[in-house]
Design a protein around this nucleic acid. Structure first.
Lengths: 114, 114
DNA sequence: TGTCAATTTGGCAAAATTGCCAATTATAGT
DNA sequence: ACTATAATTGGCAATTTTGCCAAATTGACA
């Protein structure tokens, strides 16, 4: 077997995952799921150098997760897919399951449905 | 504002995302969503050194995504949350939306619902 | 017990990521 | 045009990740 297609798909998916695989970046995505924010707002919230924040944002944009627009003096970033948060909540199952051992992910899901 | 809790959550989430943020690792997760596999099987599919594959697997295990069990001569790995694949499909929306510009993620989702 | 196949671990060099500072660009408001 | 604020970019050192080889470990089975 060659798996060429599956590997291509994996590479595309990995790129997006990787973008989300940094504490500061996923934190900013969380903030942006509440409201569009400027670089300076995010910089305050994150507590790092502006240049660092700016680079993280452009990486997220590059991954297809954010868009930006100029408003007055500032650049506002927004989530392209607000649905990305549902997706992130899905990851939380893995974290819970890790926290309370023995409780399978499926049970966690069932719990939430009840 | 302090955001201490949100930042903690972000860090936990980032850890899992990061584990999935590598082409080889997410490819193996894809394979494991079909059937449990041994290190040697995965090694063939991936086409890297066994030691490399073994290390990737232990990283995924460490992230809470896989478990392993010994069966005869081999170590079989399996997905703890098969639901992780739904979550991965969610990412595909971002990829599609990137491919066909102008089609928002929400529309892609609507399409799938129809 | 000895051997062999399967897997993990140690070690290391190459590559990639991260985050800060300094310098640059852009633009709103005076 | 000038100034001040906002953001991006270039550059670089420090850290982390990656992937291979070689060596050690594990367990099945003769």
């Amino acid at each position: 077997m060659d798996y060429a297609k599956e590997k291509d798909l994996a590479a595309s998916r990995a790129k997006v995952m990787k973008a989300l695989g940094h504490p500061t970046r996923i934190f900013m995505v969380q903030l942006l799921s509440n409201e569009d924010s400027s670089v300076s707002d995010l910089t305050k919230a994150v507590g790092a150098d502006v240049s660092t924040v700016s680079k993280h944002l452009s990486l997220l944009k590059q991954a297809g997760l954010l868009i930006d627009r100029k408003v007055g003096n500032k650049v506002l970033y927004s989530l392209i897919c607000p649905c990305i948060m549902e997706f992130i909540h899905c990851i939380d199952d893995v974290i819970y399951q890790d926290a309370e051992k023995g409780l399978s992910c499926i049970n966690v899901n069932r719990k939430k449905l009840l």
